[in-house]
Simulated assay, not measured.
Amino acid sequence: MKLTFFQDTDNPVALGSFSYAESTPYEAIFPSRSVGTPLLEIKASDKWFVVQDFAVNLLRLSWNLSQARVGDRGTRLSPFLSAPFDRPQLQVVTASFSPFGSEEPNLWGNWAFGNIRTPPNLVIFGNSDGPGSRMSWLQNGFQSNGSYLNSG
């Protein structure tokens, strides 16, 4: 899939892509950490696929799958997964900082490449709000005329 990142609705600032093996749906069972809590099971019929390649060039910086992190702890329990058919989104299975503070495995769309707090102060991130998901970018920095913030 090809990706285009915009600063404004008409101003593309980055290109990227990711791919997945459409012939091989992802299947996994993640055990619960507490008794009586259901397991997280991803079936082939759920149509999730492992993202094999992810590449973005944004503001003269390059990003790939090895630079991904999830939550402030950087925990990843599974590869990135794509659900391209019914609900286009990229997610991971994680047990850190899930929506309700649980430590149980969840499909989670909040992931990031980079860090807004450390140079070059640029982050690409996923957001799972709503029925699908989206990717956004944010750059924070300082110039001689004051602070600036770029996003898209």
Rank of each mutant, 00 (worst) to 15 (best):
N11V: 11
P12W: 11
A14F: 02
F18E: 06
Y20D: 06
Y20R: 01
A21L: 11
E22H: 13
S23I: 12
P25G: 04
Y26F: 13
E27P: 05
S34A: 14
S34L: 14
T37N: 13
E41K: 07
E41I: 09
I42K: 00
K43R: 07
A44V: 00
W48C: 00
D53C: 09
F54N: 02
F54S: 01
A55V: 01
V56A: 03
S62E: 06
W63Y: 05
N64E: 02
R69E: 12
T75E: 14
R76E: 06
R76I: 15
P79Y: 02
F80M: 10
L81Q: 00
A83S: 09
P84V: 04
P84A: 07
F85R: 09
Q89P: 12
P99Y: 02
G101L: 09
E103I: 04
E104A: 15
E104H: 10
N106T: 12
L107S: 09
G109R: 05
G109D: 08
W111V: 13
G114M: 05
N115Y: 09
R117H: 13
T118F: 10
P119H: 06
N121I: 03
L122Y: 00
V123D: 06
V123I: 14
I124M: 04
G126Q: 08
N127M: 05
G132Q: 13
G132N: 15
N140C: 05
N140E: 11
S144I: 13
S144T: 14
G146P: 07
